[in-house]
């Protein structure tokens, strides 16, 4: 388990992966957005505004995937005390929050022509809002301690409690929104969606995943460098 705990080894592996991840992200996003903006058809009801979906839906996926990734990293950090898992959780949280925020903003922009309002208490958007708050809490707790180790540990426990609660929250919000007249503008009916719309969606989603990988690796690297600087500072103080 501690095979990758050696910072030097991690940095070597990260440096090898990074060009592919970054390059792949640029390619996938360029291709995905080209298909989304120019090739895929406009919706006969929603017109051109349907193209917001190609950002909105993959962002929503990412916001959820990243929270699960944080929970997994947290479990690894708590069980095996693996230092890189802590850093991965710390690096992921702001990215996940960013995707959740992007989902909310694009949802609002998409909803404007559909509903005529900037915000509707639709089940999906409301769940995403709560997920966004969970991210903010995770980030705040992570940074609330003088001793960074305590921040990591507390945030790990919170992430695990959060991941247990997310299905309950999701269910309760769906329940609540069906009680108060469902709004079904954003219903995407999975596999029945036309391929000309599905492909760009999947390619953008892949691009987002590679983007996430790139940024997480970069952020972990910079955390390691910061830790090394702190250790050197400490050594200097001792030495003088």
């Amino acid at each position: 388990m501690h095979r990758f705990a050696n910072p030097a080894r991690f940095t070597r592996i990260a440096d090898r992966v990074l060009p592919f991840a970054a390059g792949g992200a640029v390619l996938a996003l360029a291709l995905g957005f080209y298909l989304a903006l120019f090739v895929s058809p406009a919706d006969y009801q929603q017109g051109e505004s349907v193209r917001i979906m190609y950002v909105h839906v993959p962002s929503a996926w990412m916001a959820m995937v990243i929270y699960v990734a944080i929970a997994l990293a947290s479990a690894v950090a708590l069980i095996w005390r693996h230092p890189l898992a802590d850093l991965a959780a710390k690096a992921s949280s702001p990215i996940g929050a960013g995707f959740a925020f992007l989902t909310l903003v694009t949802g609002s922009l998409w909803g404007r022509p559909m509903w005529g309002t900037w915000w509707e208490w639709d089940g999906r958007l409301t769940s995403m809002l709560i997920l966004f708050f969970l991210y903010l809490g995770h980030m705040a707790l992570m940074n609330a301690f003088e001793d960074s180790q305590r921040g990591y540990r507390a945030a790990s426990i919170l992430a695990l409690v959060g991941v247990v609660n997310i299905p309950i929250i999701k269910f309760s919000v769906d329940w609540w929104s069906t009680l108060h007249q469902p709004t079904s503008v954003m219903r995407l009916d999975g596999p029945t969606i036309h391929p000309s719309m599905l492909w760009p969606l999947l390619i953008v989603a892949l691009g987002f995943k590679l983007y996430y990988l790139t940024v997480v690796l970069l952020r972990i690297k910079s955390e390691l460098i910061a830790a090394r600087l702190r250790a050197l500072d400490l050594a200097m103080v001792k030495g003088s």
Binding site: I130, F133, G137, A140
Partner: peptide, 26 residues
């Protein structure tokens, strides 16, 4: 979780309120 944290009292609502949603709804 917030024991010993800076501004622990302010943090608690941020951590807890999102998790209160199901109880509130039901």
């Amino acid at each position: 979780l917030t024991l010993g944290a800076r501004r622990g009292g302010v943090l608690i609502p941020l951590l807890v309120l999102p998790l209160y949603v199901p109880a509130l709804i039901f």
